[in-house]
């Protein structure tokens, strides 16, 4: 499921609130029919994992170590990895095709590789919901597509809910199962097809420079008359 909207509409805020990284401004969130506040940080960590836009400070960690940190909610008081934990880490590395670089340090990786590692870390956390904040920024079109396709694969294969915000509306329309459009005049959640049909994308941005082409399902630069 993708979240789209103009800059400043509150995509990140929504995601961060959902992930309980920041307190909600108003309203409440329920997860599995229970208010999110009733979860202890630890149990919540087994339900929701995140991939954020911020850089990790410790660039000297290697890939395997970063992924293994995803197992923290399950490890004991010093954070020792059990057999199951190690098995899970190996599984994720295979799934994400990271075996060749698992001993590389984070500072040696490209942005795209790093993003894959962070997604792998979230997967290792083994949660029913994975929240990603703009996972495709700073990536070229090839990597954008590959990341989003990967997310789709994960969602379908592992039966996880994958929730991400993005500015790549064209790609979201092509790859997401559902899209949430955030808009000051009211937000809508539906499948991409229905949204196009109801012409919901047309008013996403202020009038002026871009318009939505319903036929191709993408935005075009408006020609000056």
């Amino acid at each position: 499921m993708a979240i789209v909207g103009a800059n400043g509409i509150g995509k990140s805020t929504l995601l961060r609130t959902l992930a309980n990284i920041q307190p909600s401004l108003s309203g409440g969130i329920t997860l599995n029919k229970k208010p999110i506040q009733t979860y202890s940080p630890l149990t919540l960590a087994t339900e929701i994992s995140v991939v954020l836009t911020e850089h990790i400070p410790a660039k000297n960690l290697n890939v395997a170590e970063v992924i293994a940190l995803g197992r923290q909610p399950y490890t004991n008081w010093v954070g020792k990895l059990s057999e199951t934990d190690q098995e899970k880490v190996r599984e994720v590395i295979d799934l994400m095709d990271l075996d060749s670089m698992k001993h590389k340090k984070c500072f040696e990786l490209s942005d795209g590789q790093l993003q894959k590692v962070m997604i792998a870390r979230a997967l290792a956390q083994d949660t029913s919901l994975v929240i990603l904040d703009e996972p495709t920024t700073h990536l070229d079109i090839y990597h954008k597509v590959s990341v989003l396709k990967l997310l789709k694969k994960i969602a379908h294969q592992t039966q996880k809910a994958v929730l991400f915000s993005t500015h790549e509306i064209d790609l979201a329309i092509q790859l997401a199962d559902k899209i949430l459009i955030l808009h000051p005049q009211g937000s809508v959640l539906d499948s991409p097809e229905n949204l196009i049909k109801n012409d919901r994308f047309q008013h996403l941005f202020p009038k002026g420079f871009v318009e939505f082409d319903t036929l191709s399902g993408s935005f075009k630069v408006k020609k000056d008359d």
Partner: peptide, 12 residues
Amino acid sequence: LLGENYARSLGT
């Protein structure tokens, strides 16, 4: 090591 936000999401 992953930053405070990630740490929080890991149950810290």
